[in-house]
Simulated scan of single mutants.
Amino acid sequence: MQVTQQEMNQLAAASASPSRENLYAGIHKALRAVMADTLLAVGRADPSDPQDVADASGRVIALMDLCASHVQHENAFMHPAIEARTPGVSGEVAQDHVEHLHHIQRLRAAAQQLPALDAQLQAGALHALYLDLSLFVADNLQHMHMEETRHNGALWSAYTDVELRAIHDALLATVPPAEMMLVMRWMLPQMHALERLQVLGGMRQGAPAPVFQAVLNVVQPHLSPRDWAKLTQGLGLPAVPGLVEA
């Protein structure tokens, strides 16, 4: 049976519950942060400075790689779970994903070509990349809102939190270490203190001490002294980076 628009709206309204397992919240905080930061970096890049141009190009390519991987993760795990128990809910977002992959290819190609362009053409090309990236970010902000309302509502109506955690764990098992570290760098600083403590507390129990230490080392420079103090106190760790007990 297909879900009607009215039923979809009812499912979206259910997303007001903050107590349920939320498979989208953390990664979407990371994506919003890295998208915004990359967009701002491209906007302020000096087209007369080859290093600025190269840096802008590299940042856009890295963002596109992350976004493409994110789409694949959701296609492989989130959409099948939704369609298995609430058929029809993920159709609109699935079509968005097709369009996003095309947009990702266009942005990646433009960013790759940018450093090799004639200097007289780079200013215009850099600005065009900035404008196109801004549309990509705007579209993704709306897209993520739909996932965090409509999709979460569907998942919460059809799955227990234990089942949702199993889906999340299965997805995480497919994420390469380098991508996971990149996500942690952007996700953890954007979380509030309790979310951050929950994620790192769980990681501390399941990850080898060197991996946990590496995550702390990546995140610490991006936290305010106050947030770092809250985190180390919550974890029972010394405030000096690099002193995690096995």
Rank of each mutant, 00 (worst) to 15 (best):
M35N: 10
L133R: 08
L11A: 02
L231P: 09
L63I: 01
G88N: 13
M35A: 06
A166K: 14
D65K: 13
L235C: 07
T4R: 07
P221R: 10
E21H: 06
V162P: 08
L63M: 05
Q213V: 11
Q10E: 03
D52W: 11
G201F: 02
S134W: 04
M144G: 03
V183G: 13
M1S: 02
E148P: 13
G58H: 07
E148V: 09
A166H: 12
D37E: 15
N217K: 09
G26K: 07
A209K: 05
M181K: 02
M146D: 14
A246Y: 14
L133A: 07
N152I: 04
V211S: 05
A173D: 15
S15N: 09
L197N: 01
Q72K: 09
L107D: 15
L126E: 12
H28A: 13
L133P: 15
A33V: 11
P189C: 06
H103R: 01
L216N: 00
H127R: 07
A109E: 13
P241W: 15
V218K: 01
A239Q: 11
P238V: 08
N217I: 14
I27P: 12
A111D: 15
V3R: 06
R108M: 05
A166S: 02
R85T: 09
I104C: 06
V60C: 03
D49T: 10
V89H: 13
D132I: 02
H102A: 08
E99V: 06
L66S: 13
G234L: 08
L235G: 06
G88W: 12
T4Y: 08
H222Q: 11
S69M: 08
Q2H: 12
A138R: 01
L101V: 12
E21W: 07
D52V: 08
D55N: 06
A84V: 02
A84G: 09
T86H: 08
Q122I: 08
D118K: 04
N75K: 10
A166T: 10
E245Y: 10
L194N: 14
L200S: 02
R185M: 04
P80T: 06
S157W: 10
V3W: 15
L31Y: 09
H103N: 03
N140A: 13
V244I: 15
G242Q: 12
R150K: 14
T160K: 01
P225F: 15
H222V: 11
S17K: 14
E195P: 01
V218S: 03
L231G: 06
Q95Y: 05
H143T: 01
A119V: 06
A123Y: 15
A81T: 11
E179K: 04
M64F: 03
A16L: 07
P210C: 00
H143P: 09
M180K: 08
D49R: 02
E21D: 12
V175I: 10
D132M: 05
H168I: 00
R108P: 04
I167K: 06
A128I: 01
H100T: 10
Y130D: 05
L243A: 10
H100E: 13
W156Q: 13
L200F: 11
V93H: 00
R196P: 01
G88Q: 08
D132S: 15
P221M: 12
